[in-house]
Design a binder for these strands. Sequence first.
DNA 1: CCGACGAATGTTTGCGCCAACATCGCGGCG
DNA 2: CGCCGCGATGTTGGCGCAAACATTCGTCGG
Lengths: 353, 353
Amino acid sequence: MAKDGEVAKPESGGSFEARTRPPSMADVAAMAGVSSQTVSRVANHRSNVDEATRERVLAAMQMLGYRPNTAARALATGKFRMLGVISFGLNAYGNARTLEAIVAAAQDADYSVNVVSVRAQTESAVRDAFDRLTVQAVDGIILIEAQILDTPALRLPSGLPVVVVDGEESRRHPGVDTNQAEGARLATTHLLELGHRTVWHVCGPQDSYAARRRAESWHRTLKAAGAPVPPLLYGDWSAASGYAAGLELAANPEVSAIFAGNDQMALGVVRALHEAGRRVPDEVSVVGFDDLAESAWFLPSLTTIHQDFEEVGRQCVALLFDQFRTGHATVHGATPVAPTLIVRDSTSAPGAP
Amino acid sequence: MAKDGEVAKPESGGSFEARTRPPSMADVAAMAGVSSQTVSRVANHRSNVDEATRERVLAAMQMLGYRPNTAARALATGKFRMLGVISFGLNAYGNARTLEAIVAAAQDADYSVNVVSVRAQTESAVRDAFDRLTVQAVDGIILIEAQILDTPALRLPSGLPVVVVDGEESRRHPGVDTNQAEGARLATTHLLELGHRTVWHVCGPQDSYAARRRAESWHRTLKAAGAPVPPLLYGDWSAASGYAAGLELAANPEVSAIFAGNDQMALGVVRALHEAGRRVPDEVSVVGFDDLAESAWFLPSLTTIHQDFEEVGRQCVALLFDQFRTGHATVHGATPVAPTLIVRDSTSAPGAP
DNA sequence: CCGACGAATGTTTGCGCCAACATCGCGGCG
DNA sequence: CGCCGCGATGTTGGCGCAAACATTCGTCGG
């Protein structure tokens, strides 16, 4: 009983079958009365199509709601119009900002962005990420904050164009990065010029390229100014680690100026100083790095080094496109992006009121 | 001169030609001495392949460095193993966290994530974003923080599965969201229970679904407790707008407890109170919403509502996968994710020391 | 007035993969 | 003892598109 009647719908069911599959070029071609190749030409904005024909095809596309099939196009051309981004934690403020800029720049050029996030900065994790972006699914790869590339052995699969942000300025790949040295110099000089005898530094994690660069430049700047170089303190970028370092520094009456490796650590430092009863900036001045959106509203508002993440993202994409065009890396080493000093309320001359 | 000698390499040059194109299934098949279909079965982890054969094929893959071509696979199957995420600003803390969780969950299921960022929350911008994710390039779409979906007219192209985060709990699409009402209730109740006569609210932008929900719940909670309902103040999520609202509130001596729509605005409020000489929490208590990584280190550390963005991201992906499996949306309305109250130093009983 | 040229358009082919079906060989069961 | 069924493997075809080549037709110069 249950099986009689209209059990099986006729599979050549006529007008309904179009619903199943999205329209293809062939459908558009049929409706416009042209060959599918002409549809292809219209879809790709080729010039050699008669204006009248083009409009007919466009009308047909519109009517059918035609969208080109990316996979088929990629298969035929070997290009994907897709960028891969490998990032170590999207939460980190700078990474998120950079990613957003990359996405924006890619979109402007009609590229999509495939994001892969890597938890551990081990070589195998990075290699996995590359595998994920399966050699053939993206046209190029941007690596954000990849300290691990230092390891001599990381052999990146195949000849895919790669750009490295905020990583070791590898001899192997073009890179883009905020000019860390310049930022650290600006911060240190600012404090020295206010009249502080020297500047203490709370550095980021030891395996961080950016942290190393900042610390080196801080060191050089002090030397150049003839200021004593106090011992380095290490944090891990977190406010908690800044707080820990801050407690140490607060206990030392000689400390009057601190350059923290980033704004979060600066926040922790300020808090520790506050709890120890040392007023900022009257007794101790603090400078951060990054210029978080919130830093202007901290108590006191934070003097810091502003990074232009938008520019970094744009440069990344531009560098990648260069490689697409020329077929190889034309630039090696890092393209620097200039940071700027933002003076707010957390710094002042020593011994102020 | 320059052109003689080995000008043209023999195009049937034997062992070198493999360099040109990445190896395909056919190459692997030839090396392993099987048909390409068997290679396909191995690549897709089918069970019906003899163990010895499988190993031979795997060895050949390894040797040739074979990687399946995503585009070809997608073309043949109609599936892309790719999720599209449309986000309105990746910088917003919650969005970045949610995105990261989505990426992680997708990766665990061997899906990639294609991110599109939308600047303006206009209907056409959203439609553009959908177009970008070209109906056929992703298997499903996650929309983060999409207030604009309220507009009755937004017709999303085609039958792609969609999940909405932090948007109007549309009747059209499944959604996931922090339980905003519960969060606001927790915040408001916390302040009332400390003994405050009532609670003032600095609300997010009017077109924000989350802001509305929080404000409604704050209102209900006050009513239910028999507390007077003071006028609402509006901000735009930024610390600057919180500061502006804070200046107003600071001028009103009746204000003793403030619930800010997010942590950034809370930061601005605290700053304004500080500048006006009203101490937090002694004279005025402040609660935020979000629990930024930094909030624990503000001065004073901020009492706030913690959101579980990881869970939101996971749920999104799960809901999307459900739709893949069943072929249609099984759940409608928003799946709520529970927030929690984090009590820190910015709140206390009124009239404390 | 004719042939060459070039713009517009059509036809063929294959990108790499997988679904569907075809084939083969082997063991179990009536 | 013969047939069936099933697991392992091979063969065919086509997904939707664009590159390369083929065709048509109008135009221009000698």
